[in-house]
Design a protein around this nucleic acid. Sequence first.
DNA 1: AGCGGATCGTACTAATTGGTATCTTTATAA
DNA 2: TTATAAAGATACCAATTAGTACGATCCGCT
Lengths: 210, 210
Amino acid sequence: MANVRKTIGDEVAAFKRERTLAAATEVFYEKGYTNTTLDDVAERLGVTKPFIYKNFGSKHMLLAEICASGVKGALNEIEAAVALGKGPADTLSTFVPRYVEAIIATRKAIAINIREEKNLLPEDAATLSGLRQKFVALVEDVLRRGKDLGEIDVTDPRISAFAIVGAVSWLTFWYNPEGPLHAEEVASRMSDVVLNLLGSDAKATSTVGA
Amino acid sequence: MANVRKTIGDEVAAFKRERTLAAATEVFYEKGYTNTTLDDVAERLGVTKPFIYKNFGSKHMLLAEICASGVKGALNEIEAAVALGKGPADTLSTFVPRYVEAIIATRKAIAINIREEKNLLPEDAATLSGLRQKFVALVEDVLRRGKDLGEIDVTDPRISAFAIVGAVSWLTFWYNPEGPLHAEEVASRMSDVVLNLLGSDAKATSTVGA
DNA sequence: AGCGGATCGTACTAATTGGTATCTTTATAA
DNA sequence: TTATAAAGATACCAATTAGTACGATCCGCT
């Protein structure tokens, strides 16, 4: 406990890590993990390999952190929505638009997460699998409560949870920021589709961008 | 036109190709494309590398064929359903259950298709991208006609088409044949979820397994 | 101004693996 | 029985690349 204060050095190190992760996310997304050389990442950053190894132990660790950041974003949204303590329908109408926005915002990390699972070390794959299961379980739980209360219209909460996750995650493969639709419009329409899927009365168009 | 008849040799060659593709699909699915050695595939087949190179020019060609087989399965279903010449709602209630079943049946090829896109040669990636676009465009077109006729309840046919494709494709990442639900049950329930998403009156539970 | 230590670039190594040249074996036909 | 050709196994090469040892450089501190 000698020095709890953040030093300049710590902040610089954090900044370097962040920039490295951002560059790696870009390049992994564009070329795929195995087709990307650490020299490629270094070049994107304008540095050389030892710079990266100063902050990350291995190429695998870079990948693991990128993947984790994607899942954690989604997990945060459902946990935050549940924490509001409202009923299932209200929880969902809060959660869904924010979830869609989070996926769009972190779509490159999400795509990497989906595509590169087999390139993770087993322990990292297990950790991420746990996070994903936790996320789906939370969504499923809200759906089940909504079904029991008659607030939403689903037959099998588990199947519907996977359907929602799939529909939204799929955005990472087709959403194009250069396309005709702005992120907010896509998020709004996809949210409506998902909430409609639930047969919930609470449409959430207006909550997007809140 | 000297010899149009299939010889035994042709059939043997086709058989070898099929078995090779099946083995490669298994191993690519389990370990990922780049982590799989052609020696691994050969070992799974109980042969050695030159056996594979006798029928396939390169590792990339193996991958391209596997990916193509997955997309073509889905494309066949929408084309077949459209070819029946019924209205949009009926077309969808025919298509959706068959589509779900096709995805479950070819889930390993589909998963490889999704995961390994960046490992395809550019020309193969372009071909597959074209097939996927064609597929989505056909689904979107049915949805649009259904919307115009008032048979189904969608706001943006394109977004809904992607949502459907995503929800169903996602099956490849969570469906477990060893799990508590049989393929038919999962297909039936997922079909209901998707058709419910469309606000269509035509529920298709009973058509599964037809 | 000069020293010390961490940081980053240069240059290299070791291991992996897609692809191939060559040889052996086997089945068929004369 | 023997010639022939094709299939497949053995053994190899060349290229790629994750990771590292070492040295140069630059910054803060005295």
